[in-house]
Amino acid sequence: MRARNRSRIAGTLGRAYLAMILLFLYAPILVMAAMSFNASEFYQLPFEFSTTWYERMAGNDAILRAAARSIWIAMVVTAIATALGTASAVALWRYDFWGKRVLQVLLFPPIAIPWLITGTAMLIFFFGVGIGRGTPAVIIGHVALALPYVIVVVTARLATFERVLEEAARSLGASPWLATQAVMLPWIAPGVIAGALFAFAVSFDQFVISYFLSEPGDSTLPVLIYTAIRKGFTPEINAISTIIIAFSMVVMLIAARFTSFGGER
């Protein structure tokens, strides 16, 4: 009797704790979303519903241009990182060769080194070789950050692929390339899609690298927001932030559907 009571109390406490964590994680985001619908420019309470800030945002050329640029850059980055990353993941999975461990370890610096260091290093190097600041530099930087994510996600999916299926296809007369195309690619497709979504999210949300590499007046959305916040923010920034956060969460939810991310199915 006592034991059962105790485990019920533990269960309730556990759930309460989890609820508190979720409150901590989501409260600021919800507050910001709510404030984007508040009429007051200085976040004054009581709350008064208004869509003014969304209307203002829709008329703000700088925000719209930055948003368009961010999306466009993210799409280019996604295409390049997904193609290069998938090719590498397949090669690392299929072939055993000297130095393979080194190549795998080399994927970690872009993730593990603080972006402040990577970003400033890129700035120095790109200036030195004449690429300079601007959209091409931002794309080169974003792809480098997204690549390891794509490779890790696709590799995880490849680990569940049975090599013997390709052998079966070849025993039935398919050339190695046809065997890959007919059997392996359909199998890893969900992993590739998830990798692409991760790459998109990495690029779309990336601030630090973009901050150092974009040309003033020609910046991505996060850089624009940062500048606006430091200059003293307006609720228009609230509106666009709410849209960004909703958008990236949706992208990640879709990505989660394509991976077994988060444990057993």
């Binding site: 049975e162 013997v164 299926l165 052998e167 079966a168 025993s171 039935l172 007369g173 199998w187």
Partner: peptide, 20 residues
Amino acid sequence: VPVEAREIGMVFQNYALFPN
């Protein structure tokens, strides 16, 4: 001669049926 040109039929241990 590569596998695909040998005109063989093979049944694998766990059948290796294409899941897709």
